[in-house]
Write a protein that binds this DNA or RNA. Structure first.
Length: 416
DNA sequence: CCTCCACAGGAAGCGCAGGAGT
DNA sequence: ACTCCTGCGCTTCCTGTGGAGG
């Protein structure tokens, strides 16, 4: 009995089951949630609606190319318009099909083709057929479908950069080849320069119509957050100042609505975990730090091993306060020692110099070339992320966590 | 004023992995 | 199964350089 009461989980679960004092509906803050109303995107919604409207009478409309920075509502607006369009098409009994594909998650030409086949009711094996064969089956499926198919290719720039515009070229030509098939392509891209990668024929066909999404201002972000907050939280669980801060922080980062919603969601989660009943500015600041730390940790985790060792060396030097050793040479010395400690073959100093440059470009460190006269030229290194973050990163890596307590021989007896 | 340190950073080339074409 | 090609990570070799100390 006693052990049951002491169970550390029981309190957490009980509180959860009793219901949150903050959240009413968490789903409303997710990225893929499409609300009933999208503030400050009326223009884009109207334009997209006008372009797509002919499909309701069975006519093919122009292909559309949509671009804008991340979190500017491209995907949300597209989903919103297509949702209403599909509904209407059922009403007027002029069915159309929609196939929504995110090129980042779907990844390859072949897998996109299987999705397309699926949407016209053709089953294809997930492997074994040539791309050409699958494409033929898709065209036949489209022909026998007899309806308009709207394909949305989200994050199209990712696909083209990885696999070229071959598939896109063939898709844009479907309408010219077969009279029966009616295909509308909506391409969405985060990257404005991506157009330069495209074959001019593909580009002209794809961007028969273009839609640009500019970043949201802080005011607009606030309106978006307010709408969502009313849906997601219980009355009185948030105040205006907290929302304004979320909006301002996200606006300073190219007006990213996704970022603003993340901030709000994480603030709420922290507040809830701390047993608070209201989200205030403090929680927003904590959320910003948490998001930033998570982002940095994610970058650190994906670094190549030797870059991690360089960072571990920087950690070891900084921990001992030996700022005068924070140069390429000093770091290289510690690095080679850590290598022999781990049983690794060290890379050359030239290469490490390059890796330091890469860490600088990533913003993890700050490397500045300085001249020390008689003592030559070198790069002065400054750590650009909190020591705490670096420490927790090192502690989770089994090969590197010994560095936390390690005192390099080459630094011993060294003056501060 | 000149020297010379301790690197920076460019150029070339090597071995390897993965993809495309046959 | 094979060749060829390309990109990547790395090494080797190299020339260039700002300024403290002679």
């Amino acid at each position: 009995m006693k052990s049951l009461e002491r169970n550390p989980l029981s309190g957490i679960f009980d509180r959860y089951i009793q219901g949150s004092s903050i959240f009413k509906n968490r789903e409303c803050l997710r990225h893929d949630y499409v609300p009933e109303y999208l503030p400050h995107r009326e223009d884009q919604i109207t334009k997209l609606g006008l372009i797509l409207a002919p499909t309701l009478r069975g006519y093919r409309c122009s292909n559309i190319f949509i671009y804008g920075k991340p979190g500017t509502g491209k995907t949300a607006v597209t989903r919103y318009v297509l949702k209403h369009l599909s509904r209407k098409s059922v009403e007027v009994n002029n069915p159309l099909k929609v196939c929504f594909i995110n090129c980042r998650t779907v990844g390859t030409d072949y897998r996109i083709l299987t999705y397309l086949c699926d949407s016209v009711g053709v089953k294809v094996p997930f492997t074994g057929l040539s791309k050409g064969e699958v494409f033929e089956r898709f065209k036949n499926g489209l022909k026998s479908l007899g309806a308009i198919l709207i394909i949305v290719l989200d994050e199209l720039d990712v696909l083209v950069r990885k696999h070229g515009d071959d598939l896109l070229y063939r898709l844009t030509r479907v309408n010219e080849e077969s009279e029966c098939g009616k295909l509308v392509i909506i391409g969405i891209s985060n990257d404005l320069q991506f157009k330069e990668y495209l074959d001019p024929r593909v580009l002209s066909s794809l961007s028969e119509e273009e839609l640009v999404f500019r970043p949201y201002t802080a005011e607009e972000l606030y309106d978006i957050l307010l709408d969502r907050a009313k849906l997601a939280f219980n009355p009185g669980a948030f105040d205006e100042a907290a929302l304004r801060l979320c909006a301002a922080l996200a606006a300073s980062e190219h007006g990213d609505a996704r970022r603003a919603l993340d901030l709000l969601r994480v603030s709420a989660e922290i507040a809830e975990r701390e047993g608070a009943t209201k989200i205030d500015e403090n929680y927003v600041r904590m959320a910003q730090m948490k998001i930033e730390e998570d982002r940095v940790l994610e970058v650190l985790r994906t670094l190549p091993l030797h870059s991690k060792l360089v960072l571990a060396s920087i950690f070891a030097i900084k921990r001992r306060g030996l700022n005068n050793r924070m140069m390429t040479g000093g770091i290289y010395e510690v690095y080679t020692e850590l290598c022999s400690e781990t049983g690794l073959e060290p890379l050359t100093q030239r290469r490490i110099s390059g890796l330091i440059g890469e860490l600088d470009a990533l913003g993890i460190i700050n490397a500045k070339v300085v001249s020390l006269g008689r003592h030559g030229r070198s790069k002065k290194i400054r750590l650009n992320i909190p020591m705490k973050t670096l420490r927790s990163f090192l502690s989770e890596d089994l090969r590197l966590n010994f560095v936390l307590e390690y005192s390099p021989k080459c630094l011993r007896g060294g003056q501060a």
